[in-house]
C-alpha cells in the first residue's frame, strides 16, 4: 500500500508547481494549447486508471461520459442559460462531475456484472448508444449540426490560460484522488479484485460496492474534463464529443506509463500528447506525424513492455537486490496463481 513518503510529496509539489508556472514561462498560444490537451489526456488517463488500472476492468466507453460532460455544459449554456460565459461555467464543473457520477451508478451496477472482454464490449456499446443519443436528441443537442457555446470573453493574448488552469484543476483532482485511493482501503479492495475477484469476495471484500465507487469516481472526472473541453472548443458535434479515439488515447497512455500506478498515466500522457501534437504541427501536411507517433509508442512498448513506471521500478528494485534485469518481453517475475479463484472467507 502506497504511503505518503516525503519523496512522493516533494515530487508532486515540484511537478504541480512547474505545471502552475508553465503558461507564464511559455506563454506562446500554440504551446499552451498543446499543454491544455496534454493535461486533458493526463486527467482522462488518470481517471480511467482509477477503474481500469486499479480494478482491472478495462473500460472502452469512457468517452461516453466525456461526451455527457461536454453536452451538459453546452446544454446548460444554450437551454438553461447558466448566466453567460466568462468563468461561471468553470464553477459548474463540480456539479457536472457529481451528476455524471450519480447517473453512472445504475449503469455501472449493470455493466460490472460482467468481466474482462465482455465488460469492454458492454462499455464500448454504451459509448455508441450515447453517441446515437447525441445525434438523435436533436432538440437538446442539435444533432449532427452541432451545438455552439458562446465565445468566452477572455483577453486574446491570454485566452488559453483559464482553460489551462481549469484542466490543471480537474487533472489535479483526479490525480490526488488516484493517489488517495491507492493508499486507502478502497485501493486495497480494488487491487484484490484486479488479482482475483472471487478470492477477494472470499476474504470479505464488498466487490460490487468497490467497483461501482471506482466507476463513478472515474467517469465523474471524465465528465468534468469533457465540460472544460466543450467550453474551450466552443462547438461540439456528437462524433467528436463522444469519440472512441478519446477513450483509446487515454487507455494507451495509461498502459504506456503503467496502469495501476499513480504516476504512470500522467507520464504516458506527457510523452504521447506533446509528441502527437508537436509532430502534427510540424509534419501535419504530409501526415508523416502518424508514423512518428506510432514509432514513439512502439519504441516504449519494445523496451519497457510493462509500461514506463513499472519497468523502471522493477529495474531499480533489481539493482538494489543485485538481481539481473529480465529481457524486454519476459514475463514479470511474480508468477500468477495457477489455480482458479480459491474462495476463503
Amino acid at each position: 500500500m502506497s504511503r505518503l513518503t516525503r519523496t512522493g510529496v516533494l515530487r508532486a509539489v515540484v511537478v504541480f508547481g512547474a505545471l502552475a508556472a508553465f503558461p507564464f514561462v511559455f506563454p506562446a498560444q500554440w504551446i499552451v494549447n498543446i499543454a491544455i490537451f496534454t493535461l486533458m489526456y493526463a486527467g482522462l488517463a488518470t481517471a480511467w486508471n482509477l477503474l481500469g488500472g486499479f480494478s482491472g476492468y478495462l473500460s472502452l466507453g469512457h468517452a461516453a461520459f466525456f461526451g455527457v460532460g461536454a453536452y451538459a455544459i453546452a446544454i446548460a449554456f444554450t437551454h438553461i442559460g447558466i448566466g453567460g460565459s466568462g468563468y461561471k461555467p468553470f464553477f459548474a464543473l463540480p456539479l457536472v462531475g457529481i451528476v455524471v457520477a450519480l447517473v453512472s451508478v445504475p449503469i455501472a451496477w449493470v455493466a460490472l456484472r460482467v468481466r474482462a472482454a465482455t465488460f469492454a464490449i458492454v462499455t464500448l456499446t454504451l459509448l455508441f448508444v450515447v453517441q446515437q443519443l447525441a445525434f438523435n436528441l436533436h432538440h437538446l443537442t442539435h444533432g449532427s449540426q452541432g451545438l455552439a457555446l458562446p465565445p468566452p470573453p477572455f483577453d486574446v493574448s491570454t485566452f488559453e490560460q483559464p482553460f489551462y488552469f481549469a484542466m490543471l484543476g480537474v487533472f489535479a483532482l483526479a490525480f490526488f484522488t488516484c493517489w488517495w485511493v491507492k493508499g486507502s482501503k478502497l485501493g486495497l479492495m480494488l487491487f484484490s479484485i484486479r488479482d482475483d475477484e472471487d478470492r477477494a469476495r472470499g476474504v470479505g471484500v464488498r466487490v460490487t460496492g468497490a467497483k461501482v465507487i471506482a466507476f463513478a469516481l472515474s467517469v465523474g472526472f471524465t465528465g468534468m474534463l469533457g465540460g472544460v473541453w466543450a467550453y474551450y472548443i466552443q462547438f461540439i458535434y456528437p462524433q467528436f464529443a463522444v469519440d472512441p479515439l478519446i477513450t483509446i488515447g487515454a487507455v494507451l497512455m495509461a498502459f504506456l506509463g503503467g496502469k495501476g500506478t499513480v504516476w504512470g498515466p500522467t507520464v504516458g500522457a506527457f510523452i504521447l500528447v506533446p509528441a502527437q501534437q508537436y509532430m502534427a504541427y510540424k509534419l501535419g501536411a504530409s501526415e508523416l506525424y502518424l508514423l512518428g507517433y506510432a514509432s514513439v509508442f512502439l519504441l516504449i512498448m519494445l523496451f519497457l513492455p510493462r509500461g514506463i513506471i513499472p519497468s523502471i521500478s522493477d529495474h531499480l528494485a533489481r539493482r538494489r537486490s543485485g538481481r539481473p534485469d529480465e529481457p524486454p518481453g519476459a514475463v514479470a517475475s511474480a508468477p500468477r496463481a495457477t489455480l482458479p479463484g480459491g474462495m476463503a472467507p
Partner: peptide, 25 residues
C-alpha cells in the same frame, strides 16, 4: 472463524503487506 483454503489464496500482484492487511478487511 477464518478459513485458509487448500490452494494458494494470496493475491499474487499485491505486496505481502497488502495481502495481510486484507485479512482485517
Amino acid at each position: 472463524i477464518v478459513h485458509v483454503p487448500q490452494e494458494r489464496s494470496l493475491f499474487p500482484q499485491m505486496t505481502v503487506w497488502e495481502n495481510v492487511l486484507l485479512g482485517a478487511h
